[in-house]
């Protein structure tokens, strides 16, 4: 199924444990690999990710489980601190 990339902008991101992560702000494309590299997510859930000097996080596409009305990612316990960018 082909979809327009602009449909993703503003989508809510949840984990598979139904925890809200944030909203999709931008999509990072790997030009050589012709693939989506990661999603830039902002408007983050403060209880999940502590914001220091950054506005958002990058979520690698490999942990994304499904994209529909919302984005579902794998719930990785304790991994959110490492993903800041």
């Amino acid at each position: 199924m082909k979809s327009a990339i602009t449909e993703m902008f503003g989508m809510h991101v949840y984990t598979d444990k139904a925890v809200y992560v944030g909203d999709v702000d931008d999509v990072i494309i790997n030009v050589d690999g012709k693939k989506i590299e990661s999603l830039a997510v902002s408007n983050l859930n403060r209880e999940l990710i502590e914001l220091k000097n950054f506005k958002g996080i990058k979520i690698p596409y490999r942990i994304i489980l499904a994209v529909g009305d919302v984005v579902i990612i794998r719930h990785l316990v304790g991994s959110f601190e490492k993903k800041e960018d």
């Binding site: 199924m1 082909k2 979809s3 327009a4 990339i5 602009t6 993703m8 999509v27 494309i29 012709k34 693939k35 989506i36 596409y61 994304i64 499904a66 994209v67």
Partner: peptide, 16 residues
């Protein structure tokens, strides 16, 4: 104008 992607595989298919 837009970029077409396959959300399942993450593959970028076309430019619009």
């Amino acid at each position: 104008r837009n970029i077409m992607v396959d959300f399942k595989s993450g593959e970028v298919t076309d430019l619009v």
